[in-house]
Computed example of a mutant assay.
Amino acid sequence: MSAAALAITGATGFIGRHCVEQARAEGTTLRLFVRDMAKVPTAWQTDKTVEIIAMDLTNTGDGLANALDGIRTVIHCAATLSGDQDRDTVAASVAVIDAVIAAQVPHVVLAGSLSVYDVSGVPKGGALEESTPVNTDGRDTYAQAKLTQETLFHDGASFYGYALSVLRLGAVWGPDHLFNAHIGPAVGSTLLKIDGGGEVPLCRVELAAQALIKAAHEHTGVGTLNILDDDRPNRTDFLTAFRACGWPKQVLPTPLWLWRMAAFITPDKPTMPGLLRRAVLEARHRPVTYSNTMMHNRLGPVTMLPFAAAMQAAIEQQEQQATPP
């Protein structure tokens, strides 16, 4: 294989493809792991600094370890948001860890998630920081899988000595991914806004990519960092900017205390809808703030935009992509 400084798994995913573009802009030689070659942009296929390997991470045998030969850092973006967590998040991570150990890759950067935190101990208006305990008991399968993933990578680093950087990304957003579960559920064209105060923990996909690539350059690792936009809106300001996309047609404000009461009187079981499960409701809507101080201290300058301007730009880009040439 040709020499490459950096490998990226899940390279055609929402976060992964932005990491690729960030690294290409910096002139980094890349080895990309994808599941479906049909999703690979032509520009990547014709770029001599990019090597593309089509591979199912959960079914590679020794192939993945061989494919990581000579790699200094792996950015692991491969995961699923709503699919088979056991297979696409947990099993894929086990395969990557095994291959990293076999190939003696010295550094791994994990695209983690803010969802692993236990917000129940953060007081109203308090700040969620890297020191906040993690716990996903009673949570959705995504949060549980992301914490399992983190634990697996930490265990591998402890036993086998590779450097590990865990970047806990906020609610990653951008064109075609403008909305998130921290606002409330939808019924047709109507949004039920759940609002008890606090910030929406946003992370622009461009920021996520910048942070992951910056961490990849720090070969001794940067530890665990929360990756969040500087300008984090409240839910009212989020919707004011978001509704420029034409949805929702109506917004029905509903107080957090009402949802808490409903969650309290209904069975707290996995079969119940997420917002009627206490741990899920608190994780998405507890009125807290978020700190990204360590991100700035460890990674240095990153490109930031005011939220309203960034949302408007993302909406315009989304509309341009949807318009046939």
Rank of each mutant, 00 (worst) to 15 (best):
V187M: 12
A211M: 15
L228R: 05
V187I: 11
F179Q: 00
V187L: 11
I227D: 07
A215V: 07
R235H: 12
D231H: 05
L239V: 09
A208R: 01
D230C: 09
H219S: 08
P201H: 02
A208L: 08
N226R: 02
A244P: 03
C203L: 04
V200M: 13
T220W: 05
T240H: 06
G188P: 01
N234T: 07
L225S: 01
T224K: 04
P185M: 11
S189Y: 04
I227N: 01
N234F: 07
G221I: 14
V205Y: 01
I213A: 14
A211P: 08
I227L: 06
D231M: 11
R243K: 14
F242V: 14
C245W: 03
D231S: 12
V187D: 13
H182Q: 12
I213F: 10
A186V: 10
H182G: 12
T190R: 00
E199V: 05
R232S: 07
T224M: 14
R204A: 15
A186T: 06
T236L: 10
E206H: 02
F238Y: 02
G197L: 03
R235S: 15
G223F: 07
N226W: 10
A215W: 03
L178G: 04
L225F: 06
G184D: 05
G188E: 06
Q210D: 14
A244T: 10
N180Y: 04
V200P: 13
I227R: 01
N180G: 10
L225P: 09
G198M: 03
D176M: 04
D230Y: 10
N180H: 06
L207G: 12
G198P: 00
T240V: 15
H219V: 13
T236D: 15
K193C: 10
R204N: 15
L202W: 01
E218C: 11
N180E: 06
F238W: 05
R243Y: 09
K193H: 13
D237W: 03
G184I: 00
A208T: 04
H177L: 02
D229E: 13
L225W: 04
A215K: 02
R235G: 15
H177I: 01
T220K: 00
R204F: 09
L192V: 07
A211I: 10
I213S: 12
N180F: 03
S189N: 09
R235K: 14
I227C: 08
G184M: 01
T190S: 11
H217D: 12
I194T: 05
T190L: 12
R235A: 15
L178M: 05
A209D: 07
R232K: 09
I227Q: 01
L225G: 07
D230K: 06
T190A: 14
A244H: 08
S189P: 10
A244L: 09
H177C: 06
T240C: 08
L192Q: 07
T190C: 09
L239D: 05
G196W: 03
L239E: 06
I183Y: 04
T224P: 11
D176W: 06
G223H: 03
L192I: 09
L207P: 11
Q210G: 13
V187G: 13
N234V: 08
N180Q: 06
G197N: 04
H219R: 00
A216E: 11
L202C: 12
